[in-house]
């Protein structure tokens, strides 16, 4: 993988972001989902977008990846307005994994991952030895080399998600946008996929993802973007961002924030209406 590209560090505004949304307003038809939103994605870290259902997380990710065109404002990729770039050139810089993609029945893992080379191919040059080498590396990095000849539809959910991430890697970009990569996975497989995402980050990728699970988001990201009703409520390191006040403001959730016993991050312990004895320890002592 290409790592540590310096091109993205210097943007005209001087902010060190690979990807930024500047005053974007996005909607479907007459309905506005995101209103005048500003966000900058710092290079070389994992940024996770969190927020309640319907707050516009996926819409923001789709806007950042140029799948949606904002009605107002611009998305800036490595210093250039993304709307002015060719789709193909965007695909050479930015890899996107949409929410729960579906492969045609019978398509093998290696054929699926090979499609990731598309932005680098042309009508005449449809498959080169470079392509083969990159695809083999992408398969190996995601640990699915053994499954290369299996049809994708015969794999388990966790394996399948690894294969889709492998496709995004074969694209050869160091900027990855993942829309809920752990949906429909049990906790063990979710951790497995997020460890893989962390490996990619350590190999030099900038990752932006949307996650539902607050504790996984806290554990696996260095930068959280908390959204509510189409705007950014807070952004920063999980240690600075995750507080009881913020959780209440963003999600309307009563929760306790404690130290993660196995990590150096905060841990969110939600307080529901049942099975709770120690919700307010102060009153007991």
């Amino acid at each position: 993988m290409v790592a540590h590209s310096i091109t993205g560090i210097k943007t005209e505004a001087g902010d060190a972001s690979r990807l930024a949304a500047r005053g974007v307003t996005v909607g479907y038809g007459a309905r506005t989902v995101i209103d005048d939103l500003h966000v900058a994605i710092p290079p070389g870290v994992i940024t996770t977008i969190i927020g309640p259902n319907g707050c516009g997380k996926s819409t923001l990710l789709r806007t950042l990846s140029r799948l949606l065109k904002p009605a107002k404002g611009t998305v800036v990729l490595d210093g250039e307005d993304i709307a002015g770039l060719r789709t193909r050139d965007v695909a050479k810089k930015l890899g996107l994994l949409p929410q729960s993609p579906v492969a045609p029945e019978g398509l093998t893992v290696s054929d699926l991952v090979a499609r990731g080379r598309h932005p680098h191919q042309s009508w005449l040059r449809q498959w080169s030895s470079d392509d083969a080498a990159v695809v083999e590396r992408a398969l190996a990095m995601t640990g699915v080399s053994d499954l290369a000849e299996r049809p994708v539809d015969t794999l388990s959910g966790g394996q399948r998600q690894r294969v889709w991430i492998s496709l995004t890697l074969a694209q050869g970009t160091d900027l990855l946008l993942l829309d809920e990569p752990t949906t429909f996975l049990d906790l063990a497989h979710a951790i497995d996929v997020l460890d893989l995402v962390n490996d990619l980050h350590e190999s030099g990728c900038t990752v932006v993802m949307v996650l539902h699970d607050l504790n996984l988001a806290t554990r696996y990201s260095d930068n959280l973007v908390v959204m509510r009703q189409g705007s950014v409520l807070a952004q920063g390191h999980p240690r600075d961002v995750i507080t009881t006040e913020l959780l209440h403001e963003a999600f309307g959730l009563r929760a306790k924030v404690i130290d993660d016993p196995v990590g150096d991050r905060p841990l969110v312990v939600p307080i529901g209406r049942t099975h709770v004895q120690l919700a307010q320890p102060a009153t007991k002592s």
């Binding site: 290696s110 054929d111 090979a114 005449l124 040059r125 449809q126 498959w127 080169s128 030895s129 392509d131 083969a132 695809v135 083999e136 398969l139 190996a140 990095m141 640990g143 699915v144 080399s145 053994d146 290369a148 000849e149 490996d199």
Partner: peptide
């Protein structure tokens, strides 16, 4: 990581001059 020692079976390519495609 699993299986890095096994060579994955990526479809072989064919090259004829400037033209290449999957065989």
């Amino acid at each position: 990581m699993i299986g890095t020692d096994v060579k994955p079976s990526v479809a072989p390519g064919v090259r004829l001059g400037g033209v290449s495609f999957v065989w």
